[in-house]
Design a protein around this nucleic acid. Structure first.
Lengths: 149, 149
DNA sequence: CAGCATCCATGACGATACTG
DNA sequence: CAGTATCGTCATGGATGCTG
């Protein structure tokens, strides 16, 4: 069984180190690295930003124009945490006005492959998902429909 | 430019069909199928549930015990929306008390491959990410550290 | 151009209690 | 066992205004 992580991110057993938790191999444990990745992937813009930078390096406002619906605040915030994670590089050219270019790191580009697979699945399958949703909703509207046993 | 989708999921142009939007090919458009997938993948439990059912079919409380930290409410809610999406099957055996078994659909299992790649990356790379975070935070604590140009 | 600071609404989520 | 119902919280993220 995996060792439960405290709310502050530490572990209740002295001498317990992160690598130990990693090697437990239980993806469903609260302290598993997958949870941390899911937290990052879970936010609204990280994946889109990574995919974009996977295609080409870009300046801040160019990204802002490219990704429909992203606010200045969220783009800035998400880029910063991706930079902190070592997935994105940030280069400042001190011209006037300044030029800031973002690019993906080698570690980040490793993740791109998996993300691209997900997106390809989405492009192929989302129409089918929409159909499934319609069928499900139709079933729920039927007279004798009950879910609870 | 991509055509904006209305809030009810329809499109403002008569005769416009979903497939047209799909083929626009702009992942960064607000109406792209990728956004819908990201919404699902974005929530806290969907991916873990899919991965678990990708391994084996399971009953409700077995899943609850297996996935550390998931509440009854969220497990129920997430399973229901995955079922609605056509990614998960729900079979009720009318014994006493009832037995409800969840399994992954064929469409769902197609997604598993991509998700598994992501998780493998996480297991390999999250320690490196943690190091990158530590370095980043250390840089920010340096005296002359400024971010804004 | 490339941000930061602040306010605020929404909704995701957890805890708890109850049911067939 | 397998859920539903309700309530409270807290974080996410959008809108706005300002800066070097």
């Amino acid at each position: 069984m995996a060792i439960p992580m405290m709310q502050d991110g530490t572990f209740p057993i002295p001498g317990f180190v992160y690598e130990t938790a990693c090697r437990q191999g239980d993806v469903y444990a609260a302290d598993c690295p997958t949870r941390q990745l899911l937290d990052r992937v879970g936010d609204k813009w990280s994946v889109l930003i990574l995919l974009l930078l996977g295609e080409e390096s870009m300046r801040f406002n160019a990204m802002r124009r490219r990704i429909a619906g992203v606010s200045q605040k969220m783009l800035s915030q998400t880029l910063r945490s991706l930079e902190r994670d070592g997935l994105v590089d940030r280069v400042v050219t001190p011209t006037m006005p300044v030029e800031v270019t973002y690019s993906i790191t080698s570690m980040g580009s490793e993740l791109i492959d998996a993300l691209t697979m997900m997106m390809r699945w989405a492009e192929q399958r989302m129409p089918a998902v929409a159909q499934a949703q319609a069928r499900f909703d139709a079933r729920c509207d039927e007279p004798g429909a009950v879910r609870r046993p």
